[in-house]
Simulated assay, not measured.
Amino acid sequence: MTSKLNDNGIFEGSRMILPEHREAYVSHMQELNRREKPILDEQEWQLIGQALMESYQERVSVTLTIFDPFDDTSMRGVVESIDQQRKEIKFVRGEEDYSFISFKNIVAASI
């Protein structure tokens, strides 16, 4: 005869986890996957700047890679305006779909 303490007995099958503990565990596991922002050299910044200026001046579509601590995001669209004081661009992806993207979050740009 099997014991009630192991082999899926009464106590083994009645284990449960509190929702607060599960949320804490899931957030802890996500934090383990957090990445550091890559440091870009001067040449990479120049390539990004050239792609942004070309998109702004000639209204051509550009693909931006935006840094995220867990997974980078790629966006395709046209640079509508460049704000040097606020250090961000207005990036248009469709007729009415636009967003403001900070220079410090851009890690790659290509035409």
Score class of each variant (00 low, 15 high):
I10T: 07
K87H: 11
E23C: 02
T73A: 04
G13Y: 01
N105P: 00
L47F: 09
H28N: 11
A109T: 06
D68L: 01
L40V: 07
R22Q: 07
H28S: 13
I111Q: 09
F91M: 03
A24C: 04
S102W: 03
T2C: 01
T2H: 10
N6M: 07
E80L: 04
M1I: 03
Y56V: 02
F103C: 03
S14M: 06
N33F: 00
K104A: 09
G94R: 06
A51D: 11
Q50N: 15
N6P: 00
G13M: 11
H21I: 11
Q85G: 11
Q30H: 01
E20I: 14
M29S: 08
N6V: 10
A108D: 13
V92S: 08
K87W: 01
I48L: 06
I10F: 11
F70T: 00
E88V: 05
S110F: 05
F91D: 01
I39V: 15
L18D: 08
I106A: 05
Q57K: 12
F11S: 04
D72H: 10
K37Y: 07
S27R: 14
K104C: 05
M75Q: 11
F103V: 04
D7P: 00
V92L: 06
I89G: 02
S99D: 09
P19Q: 10
K37F: 08
M1W: 03
N6W: 10
P38F: 10
P69F: 00
M1V: 02
G9F: 03
M75C: 14
I66M: 07
E36N: 12
T63S: 13
E95H: 07
K104Y: 09
E44R: 14
R93E: 13
K87A: 12
A108M: 07
P19Y: 03
P69H: 01
I48N: 03
F91P: 03
H21R: 06
E88M: 15
P69Q: 04
I101Y: 06
N8Y: 10
D71S: 02
V79L: 06
R76C: 10
L52K: 06
Q43G: 02
K4N: 10
E95T: 09
E42P: 00
G49P: 06
S110N: 13
R59K: 15
T63R: 14
F67K: 01
N8A: 09
Q46A: 12
L64T: 06
E96N: 15
N33K: 11
S74L: 11
E31V: 00
F70M: 02
I48G: 04
A108C: 02
D7N: 15
L32W: 03
F103Y: 15
S61W: 04
H28L: 09
H21M: 05
I82D: 03
G94I: 01
R35E: 06
F91W: 01
Y56H: 14
E36V: 11
V79T: 04
I39N: 05
